[in-house]
Design a protein around this nucleic acid. Sequence first.
DNA 1: CTGTTAGCGCTTTCAA
DNA 2: TTGAAAGCGCTAACAG
Lengths: 337, 337
Amino acid sequence: MVTMSDVAREAGVSMMTVSNVLTGRKRVGEPTRDRVLAAVESLGYEVNLTARHLRAGRTDTVALIVPSFHDYFGEVADRIAPLIEAGGRHLVLERTSADARSEMESLSVPRLQMYDGVFLSVAGLGRDEIDRVPTSAPIVLLGEREMPGRFDHVRLANGEGARLATAHMLERGSRRVLALGGAVGSSAGMESDRRAGWAEAHRAAGLVPDDRLVVPLPDFTSEAAHQALGQVLDDGPAFDGIFAVNDTVAFGALAALAERGVRVPDEVQLAGFDNLDVSRFVPPGITSVDPGYDVVAATAVRLLEQRMAGSDAPREHVTTPVSLVERGSTRADVGPG
Amino acid sequence: MVTMSDVAREAGVSMMTVSNVLTGRKRVGEPTRDRVLAAVESLGYEVNLTARHLRAGRTDTVALIVPSFHDYFGEVADRIAPLIEAGGRHLVLERTSADARSEMESLSVPRLQMYDGVFLSVAGLGRDEIDRVPTSAPIVLLGEREMPGRFDHVRLANGEGARLATAHMLERGSRRVLALGGAVGSSAGMESDRRAGWAEAHRAAGLVPDDRLVVPLPDFTSEAAHQALGQVLDDGPAFDGIFAVNDTVAFGALAALAERGVRVPDEVQLAGFDNLDVSRFVPPGITSVDPGYDVVAATAVRLLEQRMAGSDAPREHVTTPVSLVERGSTRADVGPG
DNA sequence: CTGTTAGCGCTTTCAA
DNA sequence: TTGAAAGCGCTAACAG
């Protein structure tokens, strides 16, 4: 490995001069500069960033640590990346494994403090476990559940989104709207917030939410939704609308409906959550709750940069607004129900 | 910041002993060990990985650097991650910006050598530019084009996949199959390989590939495909099949067809490439070329680990096999054409 | 404008 | 089993 002192020797200058040429932090005379660059070129020298980072005490790198970068977090990452770059830092993504054990593992403190800041979304961890994550690096939590007060936290208006989607279908004539992927117990996760919104929409419409319409899922994949909805269609309660906990789940539902020849939106209306790009294109177009990705990203970046700048302002817990995007999977007018 | 020497002082031992306790590399007496751990706990000490890395000359981290982690590369990343973890290293993802300038930027040597190894997929760079990427770190190229011989390279059998998909539709009665996203010029990218396969299938069926059926796209998004196919439907040549250069493009096509009431597969058959998870579920199910993600991942990891182990075996250029997954968007039997 | 010194936090020798 | 010294490659601070 070629080091800076090799270059210095080759150019007949001190290491400091090489460093100055490379970083541009100090004025260096033209001829000296040229000799240094020539030496760099001829030796094929490359700065060692690890060494620079150790010296500087910063890595100029921010991590987005999420359970999966498909779907929602992929979209979020796409918006966060340019904002972080604009601040002169790099964004890297890390995937936490699904299970809580290795999730805690990947949150091992040493790794966290390798970064100037971290966006963290924890799927499997309970609130207490999160609370035990040391605060060595600036951390902004992303995620749809209660979080310890000692972290900044950005979350969506989940209940409101679910309410919007469900109310929309009720307005358009549905009377029995399934909550596909709704939590049955009283966990504090995203699914229970979304389920609460579903229930609230029913009550606002003068209907009593029927617990049998809440269909839990082992995970929020298309496959799980496909299977579960197949079961409901075969021998579950009757329904005429589906609020899917996210768009991926909605695709699984769509497949199950199509297989049985159930027409969308005529017989069953369908709405999802996340407004994935593909949801616009999948016929008949999936009505979906839009998370306002730009706002989520901008808020998260603002909080993290504030923290990285050393602010000790009180932690913020921000809930960002959502909106409903109506498409062909729900009806345009009030139907017969 | 608490350092190891703080812990050593607190525990009344030398730094070396602290290090040994923490890494477990050497035997340490029980009582000493306990005192060290107590000090670590009470001071809230965290190893500084940057320092460790500098000392070790390794970062135990591998990067997957891709233009986008949606779709194809997201799937690849999901398969690569566990394999890398199994080797005791971490996988991080970085996104290259779309444009070649900042792509070259993110490939700046210093960043590359921060990693023990790199999987690199370059979208915007030409072969010559890639050839100029310094070989400081072990690099395995991923991507569907000719690459310099000095790198290991994993690519798909693009031509074969396109041929399979097109031949399948021709067998099932299509006579005029659009190549949606096919390259028009003679660039050496993925799209021209796939277009070549499309043409070959025609010839094998005794048909003459019609260049007017090759529809170029500004980018391989659903939106671009939606627009372009809309144009073709409105005033382009007649067709009865579509080979979409990837599944994302296929979704855009599906939307354009649905808007105009064109029935799939009865009037137009449709096949894509990548076999995304969602393609299984989008009615009527998108026939797609499966890239064999597990094989791609295993091959790439094998090559990189070999390189990271210091091998100077000749560079390998591996083309991994693909297969066709038939679904409802193409016909089950020979139709009337 | 250029060079010298010191040290970021850790671990690999080597010695006790 | 424990410790002291040396140095990974770089740059801030200060001299010259």
